[in-house]
Amino acid sequence: MAKTIVITSGKGGVGKTTSTAALGAGLALAGKKTVVIDFDVGLRNLDMIMGCERRVVFDFINVIHGEAKLKQALIKDKRLENLAVLPTSQTRDKDALTRDGVEKVMEELRDEFDYILCDSPAGIERGAHMAMYFADEAVVVTNPEVSSVRDSDRVLGLLSSKTRKAEKGEGAVPAKLLLTRYDPARVAKGDMLNVDDVLEILAIPLLGIIPESPSVLKASNLGMPVAMDEESNAGKAYRDAVQRLMGQQIEHKVLSPERQGFFARIFGRTA
């Protein structure tokens, strides 16, 4: 019986898709059968970040509308056997999502996988609502700056009211905070909020702190989830977050963003 986790944020561009790919890859590396679903209809990105955009034939919307079977739309990752991607349509939009359609797809996936990760679009309208509706848990992705924190607060409110769990009276969908693009130097300068400030405002448990890292952009260009990057600090942080997601207690470390080393600067090497 799978656990459904929605990766949401409210604010756009904070790292939901990157995190969905990274957490999905991390779970697959840990031996869990995982599927990642792109709910951002019309502005799909998950397939690109996962590196399978050239193999998309059928998508989530096709399955909802009965135009294709789920097996035809699911794309198995070439590198990790436990990982599958359900991409979404590029030509339709969020109105193509229906609650019954999404529910049926989730039911089918639940038997086959251990973890279902739903990559929510930004905003609080239909797409985001659909992504969170069937969730058992939530990961709220937040950048350590005021507008992202405010939007995440809004999303936490929605998780406690506009989800199936809440409607059934089972309370809010339990949410954990994933603080992304964290730069300790800017926090020290006061340009960014520090971890305690964000936790004080949002009052939810911390899943992980992902440092700002050039490896994220590299990974997305290569179509490889950053959790598979052995060297990068962001990758390490995501792998720790995956351990915590699976229930392990790991101490939170603030890793600094990778900077050019001293010798590299002397010898004039460019990135």
Partner: peptide, 8 residues
Amino acid sequence: TEPVRSGQ
């Protein structure tokens, strides 16, 4: 007893 979230 729970935080009142933005938008509520």
